[in-house]
Amino acid sequence: MTAPIETTGAAAETQPEAALAGAEKGRIEGRSLGQIAWSRFKKDKVAVTGGAIVVVLVLLAILSRPIQAVFGLDPNAFHQDLIDPNTSLPNGAWGGMSADHPLGVDPKFGRDIATRILEGSWVSLVVAFGATILSNVIGAIMGVVAGYYGGRVDTIISRLMDTFLAFPLLLFAIAISATLQGGAFGLTGLPLHLSVLIFIIGFFNWPYLGRIVRGQTLALREREFVDASRGMGARGPYILFRELMPNLVGPIIVYSTLLIPTNILFEASLSFLGVGIQPPQASWGGMLREAVTFYEVDPQYMIVPGLAIFVTVLAFNLLGDGLRDALDPRSR
């Protein structure tokens, strides 16, 4: 029989350290909620595609004016030599498409459609993002206050939401935009039109998010972390903005990505009706309005801005659906 092998004192001391090192290698690292949501989002290829398109559109809108300056583009430059004087239509096939004008030119004036689409992109996104931010700020504050305090406060805010939702928004927007066309609040021209559209769309759309936030707050206000904050002496404003609001970021982000395309369509509708962005400033809705006269003989001028609106709205909707599934796995 062999005698047991004795270990020296130095070897015996190193054995626990070796075991600890092995345990460190096998440890499972925890992940934050953001990391979990990102891993879910990456698996949704459709949502990733929509997000990539949104990023490209936003970059084009931000760099619209610098791109025009670098390449010497002018969305309002007339090219009468490209228009047939007998028919007032672009020379050549497909709306006058060429290497210099890849998307053709508009009838009557010969303005480059690609440059006008690029110019109109920042107008649509500025109105959409501005109105979304305004409605989200008002809706989130009103919703969380109504849901947390309840009682008479909840009743007053809820009835206010119902009142705003009862407004015929399109008719109201047409009336206000038409009234303020000349000038107001020290603003004129494009700054006035942008400000009016952002205010109308954002201010009258906040009840939609307000109802969502109110419903989420009603469920969150009974959770343990809220009771713990009350027990530690936290006041209402602290609980609203430090405890409840961070837990509402997910629903607000998802709703924002779904509201932005709605605001883009609303701005395009107002510009199409002639009470939104006014010429000569390019806008997608304004281009569709100008194309109505020529759509039978030159459909190119209507197809291009229509596709720009379609692709933008679709990309934001795909992104919103993907974010909703990533932030709320129960919706799968």
Rank of each mutant, 00 (worst) to 15 (best):
P4R: 11
E6N: 14
A10M: 11
Q15M: 11
E17P: 03
A21D: 12
R27E: 14
G30D: 13
S32V: 08
Q35R: 10
Q35L: 10
R40V: 12
R40D: 10
R40T: 11
K43M: 11
V46W: 15
A47Y: 00
V48W: 07
G50S: 03
A52K: 10
L59D: 06
L60A: 13
S64Y: 08
Q68C: 04
A69H: 09
V70K: 04
F71T: 08
G72F: 08
L73G: 05
D74F: 10
H79Q: 09
D84P: 08
D84F: 09
P85T: 10
T87G: 00
T87N: 00
T87W: 02
L89V: 01
P102G: 00
P107F: 01
F109V: 12
I113F: 06
I113S: 06
I117N: 05
I117V: 15
G120V: 08
S121K: 03
S124Q: 04
V127F: 02
I141K: 04
V145A: 06
A146Q: 06
A146H: 03
G151S: 08
G151C: 05
I156S: 08
S158Y: 12
R159K: 15
R159G: 09
M161S: 10
D162N: 10
T163G: 13
L165E: 01
F167A: 13
L171I: 15
F172H: 10
A173P: 02
I174D: 04
L180W: 14
L180H: 12
Q181W: 11
F185W: 11
G186Y: 09
G186P: 09
G186L: 10
G189D: 08
H193D: 14
L194V: 13
S195F: 14
L197A: 07
I201W: 00
W206C: 01
Y208R: 13
L209V: 09
I212G: 07
L218I: 11
L218D: 01
L220R: 00
R221N: 03
E222M: 12
V226D: 04
G236D: 15
Y238W: 13
I239L: 05
L244T: 05
L244S: 06
M245I: 13
P251S: 02
P251C: 01
S256T: 11
T257N: 02
F266N: 07
F272G: 00
I277N: 06
P279E: 10
S283H: 04
W284C: 08
G286V: 05
M287C: 05
V297Y: 12
Q300S: 12
V304I: 12
P305C: 03
G306C: 06
G306A: 07
F310E: 09
V311H: 07
F316K: 04
L318P: 07
